[in-house]
């Protein structure tokens, strides 16, 4: 008899919520695995993790993880996460978001959270499409790609989210793909360990919508497509902009260390009040 293979990370899941709602071939599982791997290799304890997400397929991840999780409104996850983290800096706040959630409806929150360098670890699963609503183009959809709202092919230019977040001032930024699970896990580990705003873009596949609409019918086709278009940051630096147009540039986009928000606000409070931050004070009688 063949023994059933159980994922070593299954212990982190809310068993009672399985099976999950992700489609066959979806990249979310690979990113979740990379997250748990990165977490185990990081200095962070699973018990200290709380998760926040917005709306979309990627944002359903925290609902399956056995920790406190806040599933919020579309695009606004980073604002809720900012409140949780500043309200109780002892929490290790991890945000799961997607390309539509973070770069379209939540774009302003994304760049401002990066500017503030608020101490969050953000994992953005970028599948270049709106999966939950049925395959509409997103701000990262490549020019010429097809979606249910781009039946003639998209005529717009896509965002490069990681570069935007880096330019906005995040401490740690990386991009990897579901075809690079080890590197992705390593980046998540680094992100969890660093102070300030950490942003890990995980380029992923959506066979159900992106694949079907773009003649990449199987998950393998999508993996190969991602692999073929991937180029390391080091190589990309020597290439012309036009050569890079359809490339997925992977690697670390580390910023010179900037001040992180939690430490700055803690210092402010201590300076002004002479005492510690008032965490969980809603449960306390006032003096």
């Amino acid at each position: 008899m063949v023994e059933e293979k159980v994922s070593p990370y299954r212990k982190y899941l809310r068993e009672e919520r399985l099976p999950h709602l992700f489609c066959p071939g979806c990249g979310n599982g690979t990113v979740m695995n990379a997250f748990f791997k990165g977490l185990e290799q990081s200095d962070i304890d699973f018990e200290d993790i709380v998760m926040v997400s917005g709306i979309g397929c990627s944002s359903r991840v925290p609902g399956y993880v056995k920790c406190d999780s806040l599933h919020t409104t579309h695009g606004r996850a980073l604002t809720f996460a900012t409140g949780l983290k500043l309200g109780n800096p002892d929490l290790d706040v991890v945000v799961f978001t997607g390309d539509g959630d973070s770069a379209s409806i939540g774009g302003n929150h994304l760049i401002n959270a990066a500017r503030r360098n608020v101490d969050l670890t953000v994992i953005c699963i970028n599948n270049n499409i709106y999966g939950m609503t049925g395959g509409q183009i997103s701000p990262t959809s490549p020019r010429g790609s097809f979606g249910t709202t781009a039946p003639y092919g998209s005529r717009e230019n896509p965002f490069r989210i990681a570069e935007i977040v880096g330019a906005a001032g995040a401490s740690y930024v990386a991009r990897w793909t579901t075809a690079h699970p080890m590197q992705l896990a390593k980046a998540i580990q680094k992100g969890l360990n660093s102070t300030g705003f950490s942003f890990i873009e995980a380029v992923s596949q959506c066979p159900t919508y992106y694949g079907r609409k773009n003649k990449l019918k199987t998950t393998i086709d999508l993996y190969n497509h991602i692999k073929e278009h991937t180029i390391t940051k080091r190589k990309a630096e020597k290439m012309d902009v036009t050569e890079l147009q359809d490339k997925i540039i992977v690697g670390d986009f580390e910023n010179p260390r900037r001040g992180a928000l939690c430490k700055a606000l803690k210092e402010l409070t201590e300076e002004v009040s002479g005492g510690p931050l008032a965490t969980k004070s809603a449960y306390e009688e006032l003096d």
Partner: peptide
């Protein structure tokens, strides 16, 4: 929009 999202998050951290 960010302001209200943030106070909701902070409320769940245990603050008024």
């Amino acid at each position: 929009i960010a302001s209200i999202g943030t106070i909701i998050g902070a409320s769940w951290s245990g603050l008024k």
